[in-house]
Amino acid sequence: MEIRLKRVYDDPAQDDGFRVLVDRLWPRGLSKERAALDLWAKEVAPSTELRKAFHHDDLSWADFGAAYRAELAGPTSTAVASLREELAPHPVVTLLHAVHDDVHNHALILREALES
């Protein structure tokens, strides 16, 4: 399975495969039709506390990554395993996120967890 990453605000493409939104909050100003989702997996997104610490309290990227990996391996490990099973039949999966930064976003870390 190939796992791609894409901003949810970008136009859907035929080669996106199975489209999964991996944000806890619905993206502002985006209709469900325009999002063209196959699944909204909000349970594997960073916790509200962790998201707020990263975006509002200046938590470093390294500290955010360590904390999110701990969440994925701990409290949300069952949700990650369920998502991995649901994605398995699809040759191409696109994880959708609303983050502007392509280098520092939770979808990168989630993809690592799903691929391991």
Rank of each mutant, 00 (worst) to 15 (best):
M1K: 03
E2N: 12
E2Q: 15
K6N: 08
R7P: 13
V8H: 05
V8N: 11
Y9I: 07
D10I: 04
D10E: 15
D11V: 02
P12T: 08
A13L: 13
D15V: 12
D15G: 12
G17I: 01
F18S: 04
F18V: 04
F18A: 03
R19T: 06
V20Q: 02
V20N: 07
V20K: 07
V22M: 04
V22P: 11
D23T: 00
D23A: 06
D23V: 05
D23G: 07
D23N: 06
L25W: 04
L25E: 08
L25H: 04
W26F: 05
P27H: 03
R28W: 03
G29C: 05
L30K: 05
S31V: 09
K32C: 10
K32W: 11
A35F: 07
A35Q: 04
A35R: 06
A36R: 11
L37P: 12
L37I: 08
D38F: 04
D38V: 00
D38N: 14
L39N: 10
W40L: 02
W40I: 06
A41W: 09
A41Y: 07
A41V: 10
K42I: 03
E43L: 02
E43V: 04
E43Y: 00
A45N: 02
A45F: 09
A45C: 10
A45M: 02
A45L: 03
A45W: 09
P46L: 12
P46V: 12
S47Q: 07
S47L: 08
L50G: 05
L50D: 08
R51S: 08
R51T: 09
K52E: 14
A53W: 00
F54A: 04
F54S: 02
H55W: 12
H56R: 15
H56N: 12
D57L: 13
D58I: 00
D58K: 14
L59M: 14
S60N: 00
W61D: 02
A62K: 13
A62H: 03
A62I: 11
A62S: 13
F64T: 12
F64R: 03
G65Q: 14
G65M: 11
A66C: 03
A66K: 14
Y68T: 05
Y68E: 08
R69F: 02
R69E: 15
A70K: 13
A70P: 06
E71I: 02
L72I: 09
G74Q: 00
G74F: 08
P75Y: 00
P75G: 10
S77K: 15
S77H: 11
T78R: 15
T78D: 15
A79N: 09
V80S: 11
V80C: 06
A81L: 13
L83R: 02
E86K: 15
A88H: 14
P89R: 10
P89L: 08
H90G: 07
P91C: 01
V92M: 05
V93S: 13
T94Y: 00
L95P: 09
H97M: 10
V99D: 15
V99C: 14
H100G: 05
H100Q: 15
D101G: 08
V103E: 15
H104Y: 09
N105V: 13
H106K: 01
H106V: 07
A107I: 13
L108P: 05
L108G: 04
I109P: 01
I109S: 04
L110M: 12
L110E: 12
L110R: 03
R111F: 06
E112K: 10
E112F: 01
E112V: 09
A113Y: 03
A113I: 09
